[in-house]
């Protein structure tokens, strides 16, 4: 569904990605882990075609997004949705208008036709009472759900999540993680999630890719984080070891 082939990217003299190659399987959720500043969010931007690499290819649904004109990219992006780290909701539009943005401005459908779909989705996400509120009037968890709804309304094949649970309290983190898992299943999307939040990764990811020192290492299932003998995975996991053991312990107790 998505594959990176020898991707290299620098910002000025700082090389972020040296030689990144990995694939994302269709219909599954892949978590991209890695230390801060390792280029995890850059991976999502490359998939979306918001930035282009200096070398290598990013294939999305059979098309190389690195070589496309902006106009073709606009068409290609119709199969993708992205939930940004800070939500990136449009300040001047209320919740309903934010959620109905794509059908109104891209599909150019009349608002009367769009509104019932928006209301149904807001109902699904527990935001029915907030349709007329502005983003500034919402809590962090509500804003995250609006951002998710804005992407879900056009039923994309691929959903990209940039730190979907960052900045949320533990309860809201759990709610959002459950929501992501539920929506992925309901709408059968291929997901790529950048996260620091290991419990969420354990909960909803099928695969883990580790980005460290500009390279990607395919870890496999999240449980492989502790078992892997790859030096870069051991290096990353050691700093998270306590959290991973604690959480995988809790998981096995629950199981």
């Amino acid at each position: 569904m998505i594959s990176f082939e020898g991707v290299q990217l620098s910002f000025g003299s700082h090389q972020v990605l040296r030689d990144v190659s990995f694939s994302v399987t269709s219909g599954q959720m892949t978590a991209v882990l890695g230390p801060s500043g390792s280029g995890k969010s850059t991976i999502l931007r490359l998939i979306m075609g918001l930035i282009r690499p200096q070398q290598g290819r990013v294939i999305v649904d059979g098309e190389d997004v690195t070589k496309m004109s902006e106009r073709r990219l606009q068409r290609s992006r119709r199969k993708m949705g992205m939930v940004f780290q800070h939500n990136a909701l449009f300040d001047g539009l209320n919740v309903a208008e934010n959620v109905g943005f794509y059908p109104t401005y891209v599909e150019k459908r009349p608002w009367k036709q769009v509104l019932p779909e928006v209301e149904e989705l807001l109902e699904d996400l527990g935001l029915a009472d907030s349709a007329q509120k502005l983003p500034g009037e919402l809590s962090g968890g509500m804003r995250r759900r609006v951002a998710l709804a804005r992407s879900l309304i056009y039923r994309p094949k691929i959903l990209l999540y940039d730190e979907p649970t960052t900045g949320l309290d533990p309860y809201m983190t759990e709610v959002v993680a459950e929501l992501i898992a539920e929506m992925n299943e309901k709408y059968a999307v291929t997901g790529v999630m950048v996260s620091h939040d290991l419990p969420t990764v354990y909960d909803i990811a099928d695969h883990v890719v580790l980005i460290a020192e500009g390279q990607a290492t395919v870890v496999g299932h999240p449980s492989e984080l502790l078992r892997s003998e790859k030096p870069e995975v051991i290096g990353f996991a050691s700093s998270w070891r306590r959290h991973i053991i604690e959480y995988s312990g809790e998981m096995s107790k629950e199981e």
Partner: peptide, 21 residues
């Protein structure tokens, strides 16, 4: 100030992600 704020809060990227120039 409106467009600058949209840029630093990733709203311009969100527009592009929503297939909108």
């Amino acid at each position: 100030s409106e467009i600058g704020t949209m840029k630093i809060s990733e709203q311009l990227d969100a527009l592009r992600a929503l297939s909108t120039d």
